[in-house]
Design a protein around this nucleic acid. Structure first.
Lengths: 223, 223
DNA sequence: TGTACATCAGTGAACGCGCGTTCACTGATGTAC
DNA sequence: TGTACATCAGTGAACGCGCGTTCACTGATGTAC
């Protein structure tokens, strides 16, 4: 027997009549995901969590875990998806916040930094996922390319790079996304109340992005 | 008792008279590190390895592990260091290979890609380490900044960006290093014999770097 | 060079522990009539 | 609406297993004389 029939018991977040029972189930499911994030943040990465640990933190018996996920890896996939949705919404809002080209970059970075600080758990998980199971890595890659595509579309709509082809806009966006994800881990590892260090990090981040956009402009002129 | 005296039994790779016994010990130590890399490559990341697993793979009894490392995390730190040394030497060589500005970028990328393919284990570990213990993350960050500094120095010596300040050269280099590390994970996850996909990835990588260097040039002109 | 003692890398057995998974169960919620 | 049965999220106990760590040990290598 190679093929495994998907268990009906494991809800794939599909829509259904919202009876009290179903709502409670979704709530427990969320508690499991939150518990995993909370634990992954306290020191070790996601890869070193145990099913029992997560269940305990969520306040259910280990066996109950299986009512919601087939395995810890499946929970991880759901986390990647959740992170992605949160993050994309924020980034889109951030980019549309202010259009003053002179300050849009720095203020976007500020917004991003705040968001990372306020969602440490999600970002921590996303950063650590790079070393996780192949399936999780693939999911993460998909999320990143969603980001990049969305950002490319926004750049197009903002009209800042009117002469660039779609492919080039995607290139720029992917570089920005990569740089952002990298900056996130640096932000997470900032010691508390290290104002000077924090300021330097943000300046560094702003400069990196400025460099990229300068390159984009130049690319535009050349081609 | 807070302070822990370092155990003399755990060799910190310090130089010493190379007696047969010491040589054998270093050989076993290397076998442990190689075993960890081999296992970390086969699926799961470093974080999910066990001390017993690594010892078994290395062909020694679990208790023998303690003659070489205090813990798995300590072995991880040694791995980060080893990766760094290998990688820096290569990068330096790659950059000095050919100076023809028209092709130096593409050929460097080719060399890099080959190196990643031939040292999958080290790169896999380095990519996964981002989600590991804080101590390992810090070590990794240190290695990356070594890279960047060295690259900045090389760029200076090559005379390609004569008008840029040291700080700006470091900025460019750090962005390049980040982009390289990111590309490494993409290279590692390439399916086997996917020539078209591989070609596209390399083109993407080259374009990203070209964009960065275009930005650097522009920065130069502006300031 | 030969001898007698010291060192110490690696052994093998043992320990207590938390792990993932299974199972029959309970009782509140849902459904059909 | 009321009743009788079905569903199923969560329980609690049990299992066998690999884990990290400790310990006294062995015997080859190293050292002092």
């Amino acid at each position: 027997m190679v093929a495994r029939a998907p268990k009906a018991a494991v809800t794939p977040a599909a829509a259904a009549a919202p009876t009290p029972r179903r709502e409670q189930k979704l709530r427990t499911r969320q508690q499991l995901m939150d518990a995993a994030l909370r634990l992954a943040d306290q020191g070790r990465g996601f890869a070193s969590l145990s099913l029992r640990e997560v269940s305990r933190e969520a306040g259910v018996v280990p066996a109950a875990f299986y009512r919601h996920f087939e395995s810890l890896d499946q929970l991880g996939l759901s986390l990647v998806e959740e992170c992605g949705v949160t993050l994309r919404r924020l980034l889109r809002e951030a980019r549309r916040q202010g259009l003053d080209p002179a300050h849009v970059l720095r203020s976007s970075v500020e917004i991003y930094k705040t968001h990372v600080s306020e969602h440490r758990l999600h970002y921590q998980f996303a950063a650590g996922a790079r070393g996780g199971a192949p399936e999780i890595r693939r999911a993460l890659r998909t999320e990143e390319s969603h980001f990049a595509n969305e950002m490319a579309q926004d750049l197009r709509e903002l009209g800042l790079f009117q002469d660039l082809s779609s492919d080039t806009l995607k290139l720029v966006s992917s570089l920005v996304v990569t740089t952002m994800m990298n900056a996130a881990t640096d932000i997470l590892d900032l010691p508390e109340a290290a104002n000077q260090q924090e300021k330097e990090l943000i300046e560094h981040f702003v400069s990196q992005l400025r460099l990229i956009f300068l390159g984009a402009r130049q690319w535009q002129i050349k081609s």
